[in-house]
Design a protein around this nucleic acid. Sequence first.
DNA 1: TTGTGTTTTACGACCTCC
DNA 2: GGAGGTCGTAAAACACAA
Length: 227
Amino acid sequence: MEQMVLGSQVYPYTTQTQRSQCISNIVNQIDGSSSGEGSKPVKRRRKRRSKGSSATNDDDVVDMGGVMLRKRKLTDEQVNMLEYSFENEHKLESGRKEKIAGELGLDPRQVAVWFQNRRARWKNKKLEEEYAKLKSHHDSVVLGQCQLESQVLKLTEQLSEAQHEIRKLTERLGEMSTNSSSSSISVECNDVPIEFEFAAETDYNIPYYMLDNNYVHNMDYWDGLYV
DNA sequence: TTGTGTTTTACGACCTCC
DNA sequence: GGAGGTCGTAAAACACAA
């Protein structure tokens, strides 16, 4: 394993990629320490730990040219405890933060950051759940709409066929009425009994139709509406 | 081994509340 | 004004395919 040294700090690396990252980290460190506190507000360079140093416990808090780099990965136990605490209360007041930090051996700032990130993850999850719920509802509405549209199509076809039948019957009745003295005639269309009544002392060419004992439409009115 | 995508930790900027 | 919140993002850590 190769290594680079900056002051008392050692940056180990094994690959060219890691070497480049070591260089990048060192350059960043130098930039950070050399960029003095100028008159205008300067963005402070973020404290990052070096790629080479594996970090799992408090021993990983190292001094990098005056910048303290803390451990990155929390232990499973710490995360479990934080999760448990988060389930009880998503907000983190000062006293609770200090208490958790003390119990877990963490910096209060780390606890605060962990809660901030955890809230963000929780919010994202909630949004995803909400989206899934809305999408499911939307899909079922669309499906219902499709079913209704197909039903409308089917009924429209049936209506058209019925109108066609009625028109043919009317033509036949027109011919028959000239030879008949009856004021009504009963026929069947598609197994549906239809009774035609001719209004007395009125125009024989404008009949009313009874379907299931209900007057439904005048032919011209129907044609005007649906054809 | 390396490139790449995802997750986790950490921070800066800005906002709100007391 | 300070504490603590969100938001956006950097960068390390990690997982995994090629």
